[in-house]
Design a binder for these strands. Structure first.
Length: 333
DNA sequence: CGTTGTTTACCAATCG
DNA sequence: CGATTGGTAAACAACG
């Protein structure tokens, strides 16, 4: 009530739910996990709307983190400064927004309790992640506090290969999918940024609302330049934040699949969440080879456009039968 | 103390 | 229309 005045169009509320925004933030992180404060930062950096009334929306966001099963909490390494835990996406919360609307999901993602009996049986994704984190922790402790990789990459490993992502899998929350649209990066990479590109929606059955609800132009994002498909000339806030993100906040590193090297297949080791024996430090070579949605099935703004009628011939259309078979997670109405 | 996290409650918007 | 989902407020515990 303080002030109804609108500074710019940028203070319009982005058509994303807190769940979407949070998922975006997490997905954009190289490790696929972020502390609360970083989620805040991500959102504030990119959506000017959320630079005000922080008390309000942050409370809501926290509420969402706790309330929704699609977010899992991962304990922070004690040697890491800061409060609170890391937040990650539940590996199988996949197609929550597949209908294209990031405002309202079809169904709420809920994790079913495997069996109430059998306590201490970590058959859950969250548990697995936490175990991974803890494993790393103990490993670090054992090694004498050596410089481990930035952070528990367990989440990333898990979300990609851990649960069950045989090959060619669509990445549910990849910010590229969410924010979707061509966006050029300095290096010449083509990214996705929210931009209305009507002709870029060959799959009406998937991104239904997107075209309509998001298609009306995008001043909500920081610097409308981004929406216009240009790179922020000054790379404003994102730099202030920490410099880990690209112009639009899309983490370049994991996307560039650079670290992985060409020889390494994407996620060679399908970690299986075995309750009995968790793979002690899978020693994942690289964070994430293919975070980006390079898989034709869903949508690939960059290339697949060309082959329209063919409908991607040799695509791994068999998007795994039951990715979360071991997880007992399901969408509950 | 402030931050983080959980929980309950209510309401509006939307879906089926 | 009822049910579901999301947003907000609020109270509260736990933590650093």
């Amino acid at each position: 009530m303080p002030r109804p005045g609108r500074n710019t169009y940028s203070d319009q509320k982005p058509p994303y739910s807190y769940i979407s925004l949070t998922a975006m933030a997490i997905q954009s992180s190289p490790e696929k996990m972020l502390p609360l404060s970083e989620i805040y930062k991500f959102i504030m950096d990119r959506f000017p709307y959320y630079r005000e009334n922080t008390q309000r929306w942050q409370n809501s966001l926290r509420h969402n983190l706790s309330f929704n099963d699609c977010f899992i909490k991962i304990p922070r390494r004690p040697d890491q400064p800061g409060k609170g835990s890391f937040w990650a996406l539940h590996p199988s919360c996949g197609d929550m927004f597949e209908n294209g609307s990031f405002l309202r999901r079809r169904k709420r993602f809920k994790v079913l309790k495997a069996d109430p009996l059998a306590p201490g049986k970590p058959a859950d994704a969250a548990q697995f992640l936490q175990q991974q984190a803890k494993l790393r922790l103990s490993a670090l402790a054992a090694s004498g506090g050596s410089p481990l990789p930035p952070l528990p990459a367990a989440a990333a490993a898990y979300s990609l290969g851990g649960v069950a992502q045989p090959s060619g899998f669509k990445h549910p929350f990849a910010i590229e999918n969410i924010i979707a649209r061509e966006y050029k990066m300095p290096g010449g990479l083509a990214f996705s940024a929210m931009q209305p590109v009507p002709a870029a929606y060959p799959l009406p059955n998937q991104l239904t609302t997107m075209g309509s609800s998001l298609g009306a132009g995008w001043p909500h994002v920081y610097g409308s330049a981004a929406a216009a498909g240009m790179i922020d000339p000054a790379a404003p806030i994102s730099m202030a934040g920490g410099g880990d993100y690209g112009a639009y906040g899309v983490p370049l590193k994991p996307l560039c699949h650079a670290a992985a090297g060409p020889t390494l297949p994407a996620i060679p080791v399908p970690i299986k969440p075995t309750p009995a024996a968790v793979p002690a430090l899978p020693a994942l070579p690289a964070p994430i080879p293919a975070l980006l949605s390079n898989s034709p099935p869903s949508l690939s703004p960059t290339s697949s456009q060309t082959a329209t009628s063919q409908s991607s011939p040799a695509t791994p259309s068999e998007t795994l039968t039951s990715p979360a078979s071991a997880l007992h997670s399901v969408a509950v109405h």
